[in-house]
């Protein structure tokens, strides 16, 4: 299985994919973090959905990770797209047959792909986090934010916890993408279904029937990234997310194992 991981990482580190992902993730991270600090006095708000966050709040320990957590919400979508297409393309390109001739154990292929995805997601999250924190420090003074609370042990602990939560959320989205890729076998449809579902359908459903939000996968994955919110506990989201991913993963794995590889 370690061989599968090594081979998968070779595909994932090809320049266009790696640099493209770094550019996207870095761009998002730089954009969101900069907006928070540069537009701190703006009437239009400097945080999500037109909300505002001022220098006093940012001067506290959570100011260190505020930008990172905002970006975290988007890393999931990036992971979903990458892993949906990375799995589905093995079918659409016909390369799955080569993989299976060299490694006939389909479960090893799947496990190796999953582990390499984890590694890639971790790199993505760490990069976005490091960039966001660098930018935060660089822009803090200019925005009238005092960074002395950012270097306390409380802030460091918050940083670790946020990184872990964002990593878990990114993994959930990435796994969701892999499941869609395995089931749909076409990169375009897997990405389209995944993104439409997460960004549009869940919002419509959540708005129509308030209580559904608690049970939708995307909301719960995002909630894990936030570390839980008052109306939706972290524990609840862990349980719901696991249920979706374990059941979805099992169905996808059975299909992957049994289905003829005829293209």
């Amino acid at each position: 299985m370690i061989r599968v991981v090594i081979a998968e990482l070779r595909k994932l580190r090809r320049p266009t994919l790696l640099l493209g992902t770094i550019a996207t993730v870095g761009g998002l991270s730089a954009l969101f973090t900069s907006i928070i600090f540069l537009m701190i006095d703006s009437e239009d708000g400097n945080s999500r959905r037109g909300e505002s966050i001022g220098p006093e709040e940012l001067s506290q320990a959570m100011g260190l990770v505020y930008g990172f957590r905002l970006v975290g919400a988007f890393l999931g979508i990036v992971a979903l797209c990458i892993f949906a297409s990375q799995t589905a393309q093995e079918y659409s390109l016909g390369t799955l047959r080569n993989l299976l001739v060299r490694q006939p154990s389909r479960m090893k292929i799947l496990a190796g792909k999953f582990i390499s995805m984890k590694i890639f997601a971790l790199v993505m999250v760490l990069f976005a986090g490091a960039l966001s924190i660098l930018i935060s420090f660089a822009l803090a003074e200019r925005a009238g934010v005092n960074t002395s609370a950012w270097t306390t042990s409380a802030a460091i602990e918050l940083l670790f916890r946020s990184t872990l939560n964002i990593f878990i959320a990114t993994l959930c989205f990435g796994t969701f993408g892999m499941i869609l890729g395995l089931l749909l076998r076409s990169p375009i449809s897997a990405i389209a279904v995944g993104v439409l579902w997460i960004l549009i359908l869940e919002n419509i459903l959540g708005a129509l029937i308030k209580s559904t939000g608690k049970w939708l996968p995307g909301f719960n994955f995002s909630n894990l990234g936030e570390g839980g919110i008052p109306s939706l506990s972290y524990r609840h989201s862990i349980a719901v997310s696991l249920a979706y991913l374990v059941i979805g993963g099992a169905i996808a794995a059975v299909f992957f194992k049994r289905r003829d590889v005829a293209n």
Partner: peptide, 24 residues
Amino acid sequence: IEGPAFYPALSGRENLKVLAELGG
């Protein structure tokens, strides 16, 4: 198998390396 299938964005060499690593 009919119609060679490889990753279009990887070089021929990289494509072979993927399979070499996979097969050990």
